[in-house]
Structures are given as structure tokens and as C-alpha cells.
Design a protein around this nucleic acid. Structure first.
Length: 564
DNA sequence: ATGGGTCCT
DNA sequence: AGGACCC
């Protein structure tokens, strides 16, 4: 690949320190000074740093953690609501701070990637065009109203990797640490990283002051490098990678630590590098054990060829990606800001679940949570926000899915079945009829899909569930926030009014067919009723299309700028 | 292990 | 529908 140093992206990766523990410490400040662990079933999902100093580890069994630290304070973290809320709040805050920066992607609840290339380039132009000085007002926004923060041009926030490889003074970036002049592309890249480093510090400071969470950050030229850089100094610290020493940095990592190279791929690669490793030894490694035969990126690079990787069970496509990543080449873009999830799932695990009655209770509980989350995450309620107007869908899921794991079927293996999401679920959410909808979901959807899955897996008799997961998926559109009515109907490349309505009917048609085969209890005939996918209104089906036109018009009056 | 998520095949 | 990956 050609040298394109002048065009490198600048990526910041932010990772909140022991996030679940930190959320609980904010909820209960008295927990801040004690060793704290967050329990999910029989394990500690995470723990605070006080607990870590006392020998408690992440993902440790509860009994082992208690043995290591008898006065460990344990709170239950099985309900993720507070973590999800805090995560979203911080993400939205950062998004609101960096107006105009749209490549901002969450990973899990506690990590964010931000592509700050445009923002940094904008600021570098401002800086280079301004009179030399000791400080510079960094512009956080790319469009008005502008907010800024001051940076000290003689001070670079810690840390750099390698240590002190980047001079603290902006004006000294043209020389390396031994006084050697740098190529212009390198100088410019260092200047951009310099600004991004100040920005990362500012963002971490803001997150601390507004949300009281400390965070670690990495600053580099790709997602992989930024994320790995952030692991060097933790907690409450950050690291910028010197751009010409990234290969040496990567070379020291164990191959399985590279993001994107998981357990399976790492096992394959380790065996290619060291065929003496007994396959059994690795396949039998437990989740809590460290890798026994560590293989570094350097070894993979120097002992194997890309062809070796491609001929392995990894396959050519994966091999090419891995080969690029370990050579510091990572094209993975930072995804566009997403404020609406693409799926909502709820699950619970069990030692043993065999009775139909117990299963129905579980389904009811899971469905109830599912509907609450659909309501809070997919429905906009102007009245709840202190305004006026009807509730409307921000984005609508297309499918319902049930996923289970049985004792017989074993460990990682989930089995799932799905079907189109019936419109009565949507109307139930809009109308706030959670009780009725929950019961119907469990009886008509969950239970039937579960029977189907068990039957098809040959477990009709004597089944024993270890996990039940339900959810809605196929939630499309709505990137970057509100989905307008114009996009719902007849938007660019989207569906027309007619097609959207037709889809609702076809969906119901499929459901009715399915119902005839599988449905057991009697229930009222519903097919003359339909639900508007915009406002959730329930109405006679033949009026739906006219009603949809009403929404389209309603929209064009208010938003005619967009409608052309 | 847990209770979530993502995207690709 | 499953599988790989991420936290």
C-alpha cells in the first residue's frame, strides 16, 4: 500500500473505566470507597479498582471473589437499564458537544469511537492561519453556534507512546526527539494527532464533570490502533501513538488481543505459528483461563505468510483482513452516529427450566421488559417531553425472534426462530396496553416458536432450557436520530406510501397463515383491523392507505423545504 | 460465565 | 438461522 500519511484519519477511542461499577457508584455514592463488584448470576461482570487492588478480577466466579476479598460489596447488575441509560446519556452528550461530527460509534455500553479527522483538519487550518501564540481556541463544532476550548500549545497532555516520543510544544513537532528534521507529511500528521490529543483530554474532562465517569482514551490513525493505544494507560488516562512506530507497538501484542481476532481465529493462527501446540490443549481451554501458548503479532508476521493464513480454515477473506490489521492497515470506518438500536433483545439464563408454566412466566417477564424498551427507545412521545402531539414511531421493527439454549444442545449454541412482527404488538406499545400484549406475545408468539424450535431440534420431549431470549429486530432507518414522516413515506429509495401499507397487510397475511397452522387457543378475528405504522393508530384496515396519505400531507406542510 | 450488542454468510 | 466478533 502506498504511503498516504498526509491523508491518515484521526480516530479517538474512549472507554469508560469499569463502567458498571462507576454507574453504581454514582447511584450510591457510599459505594465509592468500598471494594465493589457487579454480579450477574454466578459471576462478577466487573468490579471497581478498590476491589481489583484486593485481588478481585473481572469475570470471576462470585465465590472466588469473596474468597479473595471477604468484605467485597456486591450489587446485582442483571438489569442493564441503568447502564444503558448512562451509556446513552454520555454518548448523546458527546454528540451534542461535537456538532457536525457524525462518525461516532458505540461499542458495547462503555466504548466510543470518534472519527475526528474533519474536525481536526478544520482546527489545524485555523491554527496555521492564525498569529503564533501560546494558546489556541479549539473549535468543537463544525457549524454555528461555535463552542471552543483553549489549548496550551506548549503542553501536550500525557501520555505518548513510546514515552515522550512527541514533543510537548506544537512548534517543536517539526523535529524528532533527537533534533532530526521530519518529513512534511510526518509533521502534519503529528500536528493533527497533537490537536486530537488535546481534544481527547477535553472530552474526558467533560464526561467527568457532567456525568462523573472517568474514562481512558486512545488516539491514533485507525480504530484498531486507537483502541489498543487506550489500553496502555488506565484508568483515567490516555495515550497517543507516535505514528511512525505503530508496527513496533502492534508487534508486541498477543495475536488474540487484536480487535477482530477472536477465540476461533486466534486458535487457528496460534497453531499455524506453532504446530507443536496440541489442538486439544487449546480447544479445552476454559473461558476464564489465560491463553497458554502465547503467539505475538511479530511471530505471526515473520513466521507466516498471508498465503499460509488464507490456506488455513480462516479462509482468504479473513486472512486478508488479519494480515492487514497486524501490519497496521485498518480501513474500518467509524460508523455513523446511531441513536436507535437495530435490535432490542431481553434474556435470562437458568440452571434448569422444564415446566411449561414456568416457561410462560419467564416469557411474560421478558416480553414485559421488551415492550417497555420498545416504548422508550422506539417511540417518540411529545407529551412526555412536555409538548403536545401524538406518539409516533421513530423506527419500527420488522421481526420478532425467540432464541433458546437447552442443556442437551450445549454451550455456545443458541437456536432461534423468528417471524414477522404482527401489528398488534406495535399498537399495544403505542396504546400502552402492556398487559394484554404481553400475554398474547407469550401465548401466540414465544410459546409457539419455542415449540417449533424444540421440535425441529429433536427435543420435543424432556427439554431443559438454560437460556431464553426474546426480541425484536430488523429495526431500520432512523440513523442520526428522528426518522421523519417524509422518510417513512416515499423517501429517497425508500418505500412509497402504497408499498408501506401493502407491507403491513402482507405481514399480517403471513401471520394469519401461520396462525392457522400453529395457533391453539381461540381468539377474536382481527384481520379487519390495521395499525398505522406512523402514529400507531388502530383503524379499519381499508382506511389505512388514506390515513397514510394524511400523514404524508401533514408532513409536507411542516417540512416543505425537504420535500421538493 | 452474563446480558446484552454488531455485522457477515 | 447461525456464526463470528465486541463489550
Amino acid at each position: 500500500m502506498t504511503d498516504k500519511r498526509g491523508k491518515e484519519r484521526i480516530i479517538i477511542h474512549i472507554d469508560y473505566d469499569c463502567f458498571y461499577a462507576s454507574v453504581w457508584e454514582n447511584l450510591r455514592p457510599e459505594l465509592r470507597t468500598v471494594p465493589l463488584g457487579i454480579q450477574q448470576k454466578s459471576i462478577l461482570a466487573t468490579c471497581n479498582y478498590i476491589a481489583r487492588e484486593r485481588g478481585v478480577k473481572k469475570l470471576q466466579l462470585i465465590k472466588d471473589a469473596k474468597a479473595a476479598c471477604p468484605d467485597l460489596v456486591i450489587v446485582n447488575g442483571e438489569d442493564l437499564t441503568p447502564f444503558r441509560d448512562a451509556s446513552r446519556s454520555i454518548f448523546n452528550f458527546i454528540a451534542g458537544t461535537l456538532v457536525g461530527t457524525n462518525q461516532m460509534e458505540r461499542l458495547g455500553f462503555d466504548e466510543i469511537f470518534i472519527d475526528v479527522t474533519a474536525l481536526v483538519d478544520h482546527n489545524l487550518a485555523l491554527l496555521l492561519n492564525s498569529a503564533p501564540g501560546d494558546t489556541f481556541s479549539f473549535h468543537l463544532t463544525l457549524s454555528p453556534p461555535h463552542t471552543t476550548f483553549p489549548i496550551n500549545l506548549h503542553n501536550l497532555p500525557p501520555y505518548t507512546h513510546p514515552s515522550d516520543s512527541i514533543p510537548p510544544s506544537f512548534s517543536s513537532l517539526s523535529l524528532d526527539t533527537s533534533g532530526q528534521a521530519q518529513p512534511p507529511e510526518t509533521i502534519r500528521l503529528l500536528q493533527r494527532l497533537y490537536l486530537a490529543t488535546h481534544l481527547a483530554t477535553h472530552l474526558r474532562t467533560l464526561v467527568k464533570s457532567t456525568h462523573n465517569h472517568t474514562a481512558s482514551a486512545g488516539i491514533s490513525t485507525s480504530k484498531t490502533l486507537a483502541k489498543l493505544a487506550g489500553t496502555i494507560n488506565k484508568p483515567d488516562a490516555q495515550t497517543v501513538l507516535h505514528p511512525t512506530t505503530t508496527q513496533a507497538f502492534l508487534d508486541k501484542f498477543e495475536i488474540g488481543k487484536i480487535p477482530g481476532i477472536g477465540r476461533k481465529a486466534a486458535t487457528i493462527i496460534r497453531q499455524l505459528v506453532n504446530p507443536l501446540i496440541e489442538p486439544e490443549e487449546q480447544l479445552h481451554e476454559e473461558w476464564f483461563e489465560d491463553v497458554k501458548q502465547k503467539v505475538t503479532v511479530l511471530e505471526v508476521r515473520t513466521k507466516l505468510t498471508q498465503v499460509d493464513l488464507a490456506r488455513s480454515p480462516l479462509g482468504g477473506t479473513e486472512a486478508a483482513k488479519v494480515w492487514a490489521w497486524i501490519h497496521g492497515l485498518d480501513d474500518q470506518g467509524v460508523g455513523a452516529k446511531k441513536t436507535v438500536p437495530s435490535q432490542i433483545t431481553v434474556e435470562d439464563t437458568f440452571r434448569s427450566l422444564t415446566r411449561a408454566e414456568a416457561v410462560m412466566e419467564v416469557l411474560d417477564r421478558l416480553h414485559s421488559k421488551m415492550l417497555s424498551r420498545m416504548s422508550s427507545e422506539l417511540v417518540e412521545d411529545p407529551e412526555a417531553a412536555g409538548g403536545v402531539g401524538k406518539k409516533r414511531w421513530i423506527a419500527v421493527p420488522k421481526t420478532y425472534r425467540l432464541s433458546i439454549r437447552t442443556r442437551k444442545h450445549g454451550f455456545g449454541n443458541r437456536v432461534s426462530r423468528s417471524m414477522p412482527l404482527p401489528s398488534w404488538v406495535l399498537s399495544g406499545v403505542i396504546n400502552g396496553d402492556n398487559e394484554g400484549t404481553v400475554g398474547r406475545l407469550s401465548r401466540e408468539m414465544g410459546w409457539n416458536l419455542m415449540k417449533r424450535a424444540l421440535k425441529e431440534e429433536g427435543e420435543e420431549r424432556g427439554w431443559d432450557l438454560q437460556l431464553v431470549n426474546v426480541g425484536v429486530a430488523g429495526i431500520e432507518g432512523a440513523e442520526g436520530g428522528r426518522r421523519t414522516i417524509g422518510e417513512f413515506f416515499g423517501g429517497k429509495g425508500k418505500q412509497t406510501v402504497r408499498e408501506e401499507v401493502a407491507e403491513v397487510e402482507e405481514m399480517d397475511g403471513e401471520w394469519e397463515l401461520w396462525e392457522e397452522e400453529c395457533y391453539v387457543d381461540g381468539e377474536e378475528d382481527e384481520d379487519v383491523w390495521g395499525v398505522c405504522s406512523v402514529c400507531g393508530g388502530r383503524m379499519l384496515r381499508f382506511t389505512l392507505e388514506a390515513h397514510a396519505r394524511f400523514h404524508a400531507l401533514e408532513h409536507s406542510e411542516g417540512m416543505d423545504m425537504d420535500m421538493a
